[in-house]
């Protein structure tokens, strides 16, 4: 562990000293042993603050949106999930590849529920790889298990399941803020004058927010699990986006996002031979 951490610190220090990167984003210590926090280091002397342990959980890629026109490159420690998020941001035209310097750090799985879903521990794209790739975990047999469980319920049970789930949503929008696929400059949920989304804390408005959020990101979701990790109410909201992905998989065959920066998302294109259910 500490050998890898040492490599990361050295790499960050060199990048900053050579002026290749303006700052580097990574994980740093907190007051708690079992927590880390994202940190932004500008000073080469500060590179010793980076840590690498089983609590380096946060996905870092979304911070790139906060600085779209940097003077120098932004250094970013990149695992599998960060690299898929970067592919997402590149495909959605949110960042420029030449503005980031990706330091590949193959991941060994962290202490987080979101890592149980992970199928891509090694960075897909990077500028430098700090150590040998890890073995990917066995393909998650149950990618859509939870969706199947919900599908097996009756329509009324499904309504109650999601209704009760969204009853405790506090509309903090953390799920939106953390998601690499949620990258509009202004979110429909904040446009209070358009009437798209009611602000009330009612089951109806909460459910509409939940379904709409899922629909806006569903066909571009990289399945990083960040939305569920940050939800303060622990709501199983990936059950909605996973449903969309499952349907797309059934309609067009194998479909997974963030594996490259060029594939068009499902709802952004069409096929003349698409199934027609609406005759």
């Amino acid at each position: 562990m500490s050998e890898k951490q040492e490599k990361m610190r050295q790499c960050a220090e060199k990048l900053l000293r050579d002026g290749e990167a303006g700052y580097v984003i990574g994980w740093g210590e907190t007051r708690f042993d079992d927590r880390t926090t994202p940190i932004f280091v500008e000073d080469p002397a500060g590179a010793g603050a980076f840590v690498w342990n089983e609590y380096a959980i946060n996905s870092l890629a979304k911070y790139l949106l906060d600085d779209k026109y940097p003077d120098k490159k932004i250094g970013l420690f990149t695992r599998g999930c960060e690299s898929r998020a970067i592919n997402r941001l590149l495909k959605d035209n949110q960042i420029k590849r030449e503005n980031v310097y990706l330091i590949g750090v193959p991941c060994d799985g962290k202490k987080s529920d979101r890592c149980t879903l992970c199928r891509e521990r090694n960075p897909i794209l990077y500028d430098v790889l700090l150590w040998t790739p890890e073995d990917d975990p066995p393909p998650a047999a149950g990618r859509f298990d939870r969706v199947k469980d919900i599908e097996a319920m009756s329509p009324d049970e499904r309504y109650v399941y999601w209704g009760e789930t969204y009853d405790s949503c506090i509309r903090c929008y953390a799920c939106r803020n953390v998601c690499p696929a949620c990258n509009c400059r202004e979110c429909y949920a904040d446009m209070s004058k358009t009437g798209f989304q009611g602000k009330q804390h009612s089951r109806s408005d909460n459910q509409i927010f939940g379904v709409t959020r899922a629909f806006h990101v569903g066909d571009r979701c990289i399945e990083c699990g960040e939305c569920e990790r940050v939800c303060p109410m622990n709501l199983p909201i990936m059950g909605q986006t996973q449903k969309i992905l499952k349907d797309i998989n059934e309609l067009t065959g194998e479909y997974e996002c963030g594996m490259d920066a060029t594939s068009e998302n499902y709802l952004g294109r069409f096929d003349l031979d698409d199934k027609d259910e609406f005759m």
Partner: peptide
């Protein structure tokens, strides 16, 4: 499909 999944 998403509507049905949500109980409509």
């Amino acid at each position: 499909r998403l509507l049905e999944y949500n109980g409509i």
